[in-house]
Every structure is written in structure tokens, then in C-alpha cells.
């Protein structure tokens, strides 16, 4: 009796382990893996690039992933190994370690959080694999740990949002609530800082600030809480479109009109957000360009060719008000 139980337990543990491995594999994209056909080194002229994405938490991220997968193709000279970290740093570190073990030519990743990367980046450096950061930065003191950081200037994005609010509402004593991104992430920290610095010296007041974790569901529940906690909210500043879209739902459920009774300012400019802006439910969106694929391809080629690259490549961001959204919407790629 005891023996069969043990046998069953072992069998179960084995099948669980097998499925764990399957689960990890199923998130890697099929693109590019056909050309690589097993050997991790650059067998032909293809540059093998291991990319660890944050997750699929928002529409922005989806556009970013698509840009990278569409650019780093075999036709363009790349063998892309893509993995999704599901917003967990440990998954990302694991993915980077596996890329090091496979001996890829370049490692690129968008760090989930800012801190705690030194050890694994040191390993990559020791293995002689150049690292490129995309979208989000790390707070490491040692700049030699990575070749380049491609991405938007989050502080500037926060400032642009804050400036628009200051220009339009200074002197009216408006009260702002803020929906922050994932606690500890670079965009959340920087956008908060940029917004605060842009409205400093005005009579605009941020009366509450909570994390909505960059997701629509949490943006909605947190906004519901804000509406219960405060009577006098004039404006919502959301660190991304998805939380802003969640806030719209909560505001509508409270019988108020988003865009009029409560103004909404967000960052990202993904399709759903732009649509809401064109519909008048959002008042202003600062773009955060997700199309980093071409820049990444360019830098990766230069790094492999031994050319020097700039440590910081800032992607140009625009901003849209409601009229601009109506004009821009038909031609938007994402």
C-alpha cells in the first residue's frame, strides 16, 4: 500500500515537472526558431538574440512585442529567442541565464523592476555576451554591464503630462488622483516624478496616489476606491492607458462623465486609449513609442560588428489632445 502511494507520488511529481517545463516553453514565440534549428551559436550569418519581455500586461506591451517579433526575423538576419517573464523578475533572470547557457550572440530585455540585476548582468559580461536594455532601465552603478539602453524618457513623459495639466488648469485649484504603475518599476517612479515636478509651483494638488499595476482591472477597482474616498476629484493621471480605461469604467459606473466631470490624462497612446481620446473620454495622452524593434535591430547589428554605440538612445515621443487623436487614429500602427 505504502509502496503504491509512493509510486503514484513520484509519477505525479514527474508529470508536474514535465508540465512545468512545457508551460515555460509554451510562452516562447515560434518566430525565428525555425531558422535557428537547434544550434544556438550564429551558425550562418544570423545574429542569435535572446529577448526577455516583461509580460503581456497591457496593450502597449503587446504592440512592443509585435514590433520586436516582426523586426527581428530571419529575413532581417536575426534568430530571435523570445520569452515572456509574466511580470516576475525571477523568471526574467532565469531566462537571461538560459540565454547565457545557450550562448546567444546578444541578450536584450526590458527589466521588470529597476534593481537587482548586477549579478546576472555580471554573468553575461563574463560570458562575453553584450546586453541591450529596451524600454526600461536598471539602476546599476556599473554602466559597463550593458551596451545601450533604448527607450523613452519616462521622466519627460510625466513632465509633458504635468505641463498640459498645468497649462490648462493652473489657478483653478484642481484636485488630482494618480494611478501609479507597478510599484518599483522605472516608468512608475519616473512618470510620478516628472508629473510632480511639472505641477510644482501651481495650485494643482495630487490628493491621492495608488498603484493600479498597469492593468485595466486594478485601474478600475482602485478608481472605485478613489471615488468612494474623495468627493472632489477633478482629474485622473494614469501612468498608462489601460489603467485610464479601467478608470473610465469606474467613473461611468459612478454616474459621472469621463472627460468632462473628471478629466483623464494618460501615457502610452495605444489604440484603445487613442479611441477613447477621440471619443472624448480621455483628455490628453502622452505617447510612449512601443516600436522599439527597428532600433533594437540596428543597435544589435552595430554591437556585433564591434562598432561603438550610444549608451542612451531616447525614442521620440509625441502627445495628443482630442483633435489630434481624431486626425491620427486612422493611420496608427498600434
Amino acid at each position: 500500500m505504502a509502496r503504491t502511494t509512493f509510486g503514484r507520488g513520484a509519477l505525479a511529481a514527474l508529470s508536474a515537472a514535465a508540465l512545468l517545463a512545457l508551460g515555460a516553453c509554451s510562452t516562447t514565440a515560434p518566430e525565428g526558431s525555425d531558422a535557428g534549428s537547434g544550434d544556438a551559436g550564429s551558425g550562418d550569418d544570423l545574429i542569435t538574440i535572446g529577448f526577455s519581455q516583461v509580460g503581456a500586461e497591457s496593450g502597449w506591451r503587446a504592440a512592443n512585442t509585435k514590433s520586436i517579433q516582426d523586426t527581428l526575423t530571419a529575413e532581417n538576419g536575426f534568430d530571435l529567442k523570445f520569452s515572456d517573464a509574466q511580470q516576475k523578475q525571477e523568471n526574467q533572470i532565469q531566462a537571461i541565464r538560459s540565454y547565457i547557457a545557450q550562448g546567444v550572440d546578444v541578450i536584450a530585455f526590458s527589466p521588470v523592476v529597476e534593481s537587482g540585476w548586477d549579478a546576472v548582468l555580471e554573468e553575461a559580461k563574463t560570458a562575453g555576451i553584450p546586453v541591450i536594455l529596451t524600454d526600461r532601465a536598471v539602476d546599476s552603478q556599473d554602466e559597463t554591464l550593458y551596451e545601450s539602453f533604448i527607450g523613452s524618457d519616462f521622466v519627460l513623459e510625466g513632465e509633458m503630462a504635468g505641463q498640459w495639466v498645468a497649462e490648462n488648469f493652473d489657478g483653478q485649484g484642481i484636485k488630482v488622483v494618480e494611478l501609479q504603475g507597478t510599484t518599483g518599476s522605472a516608468p512608475a517612479i519616473d512618470r510620478k516624478e516628472g508629473f510632480a515636478s511639472a505641477i510644482a509651483g501651481t495650485d494643482i494638488e495630487v490628493i491621492d496616489s495608488q498603484t493600479g499595476n498597469f492593468t485595466r482591472a486594478e485601474g478600475k477597482t482602485v478608481m472605485e476606491g478613489f471615488l468612494q474616498a474623495h468627493d472632489d476629484i477633478d482629474l485622473v493621471f494614469a501612468h498608462n492607458d489601460d489603467m485610464g480605461l479601467g478608470a473610465i469604467e469606474a467613473i461611468e459606473a459612478a454616474g459621472l462623465t469621463p472627460g468632462e466631470d473628471i478629466k483623464i490624462v494618460t501615457i502610452d497612446a495605444v489604440k484603445d486609449g487613442m479611441q477613447a481620446l477621440a471619443d472624448g473620454k480621455i483628455n490628453y495622452i502622452v505617447e510612449c513609442n512601443p516600436l522599439l524593434g527597428p532600433d533594437l535591430a540596428d543597435i544589435a547589428k552595430k554591437v556585433i560588428a564591434g562598432e561603438s554605440v550610444e549608451k542612451r538612445i531616447v525614442v521620440k515621443d509625441e502627445a495628443f489632445d482630442q483633435e489630434a487623436a481624431v486626425a491620427a487614429l486612422p493611420t496608427r500602427e498600434y
Partner: peptide, 13 residues
């Protein structure tokens, strides 16, 4: 849950 936000988020739902 999906209907609440009209979005299916495989990672976070």
C-alpha cells in the same frame, strides 16, 4: 472577471 474589464489578460486574470 473578463466581463468586468472586457479584456482577457492571460497573465493577470
Amino acid at each position: 472577471f473578463a466581463s468586468n474589464t472586457m479584456a482577457a489578460d492571460a497573465n493577470n486574470a
